[in-house]
């Protein structure tokens, strides 16, 4: 197996707080890798270091053999690593269709393209692609509504659609089902397991163990900035270290 994302020796401190200390993680091509851990373990910090939102103090992040540290977010996107945010980051004033057409346009137009005399009306290919992605997420009936006006669960699904329409090599999902009702969660799981997404490498940060164990091929456990275990769901379930991290010091008391 080839490593598509290679995180080696990443450190990040905020003031006195060691958010990440010497984190090593290899994501294999095609796998769905879940990162779990208690609150404040550094999961979101780790994602932010991969995507260019934060610069790690030391260590390296390489994606497809290319160094990602110090790269602009838009270039990271075009390298094929796309992130779906924890709090919905959408374009609230634009329609749902526009929200999905924009990432599709990014894929086609690159970081910058000046095409003021093209008409959106004739962008059939982009429109169809966006519409069918919306349909995959059962959002197509609201396509002309403002994205700011739909429910929170729908916004999360819209974000997923915005990520997927770009067909990324690696999709980073930050708690994709947080705040969703049970049936929405199940629908999202089905979608992430669907044929279209099967081949895509995915990194998922998640609290919901139901989601983690239904999706993940491998799981890494992050606690207090350290990766304490990486393995298959079975291995993680039976690991004493993980039990300790999750159940706290109850064994010692």
């Amino acid at each position: 197996m080839t490593h598509i994302l290679n995180i080696t020796g990443v450190n990040k401190t905020f003031g006195g707080l060691h958010a990440l200390s010497d984190v090593n993680l290899q994501i294999e091509k095609g796998e769905t890798h879940a990162i779990i851990g208690p609150n404040g373990a550094g999961k979101s910090t780790l994602l932010n270091c991969c995507i260019g939102r934060l610069a790690p103090d030391s260590g390296s992040v390489t994606f497809n053999g290319k160094n990602m540290i110090g790269m602009e977010p838009h270039n990271i996107n075009h390298a094929g690593m796309v992130r779906v945010f924890q709090t919905p980051e959408i374009f609230p004033e634009l329609s749902l269709l526009d929200n999905v057409m924009i990432p599709a346009l990014a894929k086609r137009d690159g970081v910058f393209k000046f095409n003021p005399f093209r008409s959106m009306i004739f962008e059939h290919k982009i429109r169809d692609e966006a519409m069918s992605t919306l349909a995959d997420f059962s959002l197509d009936q609201y396509y002309d509504q403002h994205a700011g006006s739909i429910s929170r669960g729908d916004k999360r699904r819209l974000e997923l659609a915005m990520g997927l329409v770009q067909h990324p090599t690696l999709l980073l999902l930050d708690e994709p089902t947080a705040g969703m009702a049970r049936h929405d969660t199940n629908r999202t799981i089905e979608l992430l397991k669907s044929e279209k997404m099967q081949s895509m490498t995915k990194v998922i940060i998640e609290h919901d163990m139901h989601v983690v164990f239904s999706l993940a091929d491998r799981i890494s456990v992050l606690a207090r900035g350290h990766i304490i275990a990486t393995g298959t769901p079975e291995e993680i379930k039976n690991s004493p270290q993980v039990k300790e991290a999750y159940l706290g010091e109850s064994d010692n008391e």
Binding site: I51, E72, P73, H74, N77, H78, V82, R83, F85, E89, I90, F91, P92, E93, L94, D98, M101, I102, P103, L105, A106, K107, D109, G110, V111, F112, K113, F114, N115, P116, F117, R118, S119, M120, I121, E123, I126, M162, Q166
Partner: peptide, 29 residues
Amino acid sequence: LKIFRSPFGLKLKAIKSNQTRMKYTGFNT
């Protein structure tokens, strides 16, 4: 009118709406 209804115009509107998102969507704003 042409600019308003072009992909370029749509991207400008998206920058107004959420510039950070545009950067992570792969645009150099």
